[in-house]
Design a protein around this nucleic acid. Structure first.
Lengths: 162, 162
DNA sequence: TGATAATTGTAATTCTATAACATATCAAGC
DNA sequence: GCTTGATATGTTATAGAATTACAATTATCA
């Protein structure tokens, strides 16, 4: 329901809101929101799409902030650990969280045509998966939920008169 | 519910059943179930666990069936395309389907301690994810659903007197 | 049989991620 | 303020996963 999804919207404001939320969260939990970490988050927020670690690294490099993979991966580790950024397994890529700070289980809608990614919400411990896990005696700690398909824009483009 | 899951069971028979089902499906659909493809499936069925492409390649190599990555990846492509094998994105690994031939959306329960993987069932177009997709105008074609946590065996080992 | 498509073999490369170790910076107690 | 231990960064090298490109072979079917 809170899939802002594939619609265009005011980047600047969602970017600033997210950044402020992360800043607040770090301050509250005594986390070091260092320049590299901040910059990586800013890059992801401003691009507003899933980016590979090396794409991010290219930007960092061009800005003189470290040019070796571990620099990017370590910043991403921090951001992912604290749920400010999510990893999209299917794309081996990373995307800024659309509502950092809140606890949640992200689910992603990935367009196979344009690679756009929208973040939705899931509740893996409920529903069929939850029942299967219970039946198997499996304790779910974390879930990767990624749907691949066509986003509204690409879907429209392919079925002109539907 | 049909998570045979983490319990021990008769490998030999599930192996043969699956292989027969794949053979039948290929015959019925005029698919070329070539020696390499068959061998890769056999390896995955007999190991009965998620294996990396290079693990599989090592076995092929030791048997003189091709020693370069594309050999393994192409066989895996075929097997994944026809749903005889699934890719576990979280592990960059592949696992034989426990009920090939039937159309289904696999969901995986991955133990973070012993890397055991159980296949369960999901219905991504239903539930919260389905609603979110509908709301966003997104058409789900395929889904990756992977839960990470502790399997019954490892869970037990960690909480001795629970 | 001959033409076409599908599959396999092989070499090289690209993309993704981590290990290991040195250096620098931060945070807290003295 | 200084010391100390922990945390973070810089850098080199390497490991792991996957694909491109092209040649050679094998299957399929008219």
């Amino acid at each position: 329901m809170d899939t802002i999804g594939f619609a265009r919207h005011d980047h600047k404001s969602c970017e600033q809101t997210a950044l402020a939320a992360v800043e607040a969260h770090c301050a509250a939990h005594k986390l070091q929101f260092t320049p590299v970490r901040r910059r990586v988050l800013e890059i992801l927020l401003s691009e507003h799409r899933a980016m590979g670690a090396y794409d991010i690294l290219d930007v960092l490099r061009s800005e003189g902030m470290g040019s070796q993979p571990p620099v990017a991966y370590r910043a991403l580790d921090f951001l992912v650990t604290h749920r400010f950024v999510h990893k999209v397994e299917r794309l081996n890529a990373f995307i800024a969280c659309t509502h950092p700070g809140e606890t949640h289980t992200p689910a992603f809608l990935i367009c196979r045509n344009c690679d756009a990614v929208a973040e939705a919400q899931a509740e893996p411990t409920r529903g069929i998966l939850g029942h299967a896990a219970d039946a198997a005696g499996f304790e779910i700690e974390q879930a990767v939920i990624e749907a691949v398909g066509l986003c509204p824009n690409c879907h429209e483009a392919r079925t002109p008169c539907a």
